[in-house]
Simulated scan of single mutants.
Amino acid sequence: MDEKTAELRDLFVETTGEETVTESQSTPRGSISADCDDDAVDERLADLIAAMRDRYEFVSSLSPADLLRIVRGFFDPDAAGADAESWSDAADAALADSLSADADAETVFHARMDLHLVAESDREAPVRYERLRRAVLAASDDSGCAIDGSLAAALDTDPDAETVSRYRRVVEADLASRGVNHRFRDGFSDLLTDADLSSRLAADARRDGLEEATEDIETDVSL
């Protein structure tokens, strides 16, 4: 093995953490794993939801089946026409129409907060979101009215009670999720993420890292 080949091989090992180029033999974690069909996924999702209901006081009175539909819909862009990055009130309304209960967009919003399914659009505010988070933390040991007052002052827009309540729900859901290292949300995501897509993204990331590392090295050699 000449000097250039050895250098490339060392870069490959450093970038990928692998000694040889082999096909991954690990069991995929996503929803299309061979030993994990839809029924098994639903059972595990239901277990996570039940664990959350045991741990937290849910605002939502939706059935476990409808809560499960919301979890699935949040991670399925086809279900509500949006994903976590592009979520909107319209997506909440679309999910509400799919539930067995008589529900509206607000019902789905409250259920999402119970389930720690906060979207980027939920955090959009007339001031920096971190300011709202600090306001809730500063008043977290006080009464609900004190927390709402702290939030209203942070918003600087003379907001109505409904707006303040909504932001409070978002911030408190985020804080609760962070308090358990996003264990429940990540659990939902792990079960519902396409394993093949995850593998492709990992492969792309490794390839991009290797290409960047070797950008200035001759590549007309063989490993």
Rank of each mutant, 00 (worst) to 15 (best):
residue 118 V to P: 02
residue 209 G to H: 07
residue 200 R to K: 13
residue 167 Y to M: 08
residue 38 D to I: 05
residue 170 V to P: 00
residue 8 L to S: 02
residue 89 D to A: 05
residue 195 A to N: 03
residue 81 G to V: 06
residue 107 T to P: 08
residue 32 I to W: 14
residue 174 D to V: 13
residue 27 T to G: 10
residue 121 S to Q: 07
residue 132 L to Y: 01
residue 170 V to S: 03
residue 73 G to H: 00
residue 86 S to E: 07
residue 79 A to D: 02
residue 37 D to S: 06
residue 190 D to G: 08
residue 117 L to A: 03
residue 22 T to L: 13
residue 79 A to H: 08
residue 114 D to E: 10
residue 192 L to A: 07
residue 221 V to T: 09
residue 59 V to Y: 15
residue 214 T to C: 09
residue 43 E to N: 10
residue 27 T to A: 13
residue 190 D to W: 12
residue 92 D to I: 01
residue 122 D to N: 03
residue 12 F to G: 08
residue 132 L to P: 01
residue 4 K to M: 12
residue 203 A to Q: 13
residue 200 R to F: 13
residue 157 T to Y: 05
residue 97 D to W: 04
residue 24 S to E: 09
residue 162 E to Y: 13
residue 79 A to W: 07
residue 108 V to A: 02
residue 117 L to E: 00
residue 170 V to L: 07
residue 99 L to K: 01
residue 197 L to F: 14
residue 46 A to W: 00
residue 212 E to L: 15
residue 101 A to C: 03
residue 11 L to M: 14
residue 161 A to I: 01
residue 81 G to R: 12
residue 134 R to T: 12
residue 69 R to I: 09
residue 19 E to P: 05
residue 35 D to G: 04
residue 185 R to V: 06
residue 85 E to A: 15
residue 220 D to P: 02
residue 63 S to E: 13
residue 58 F to Q: 04
residue 37 D to C: 11
residue 144 G to N: 15
residue 89 D to G: 10
residue 119 A to H: 00
residue 176 A to G: 02
residue 186 D to L: 13
residue 201 L to N: 12
residue 154 A to M: 04
residue 96 A to H: 01
residue 79 A to K: 02
residue 57 E to K: 11
residue 116 H to Y: 11
residue 201 L to D: 10
residue 7 E to K: 08
residue 38 D to Q: 15
residue 192 L to V: 06
residue 32 I to P: 02
residue 126 P to Y: 10
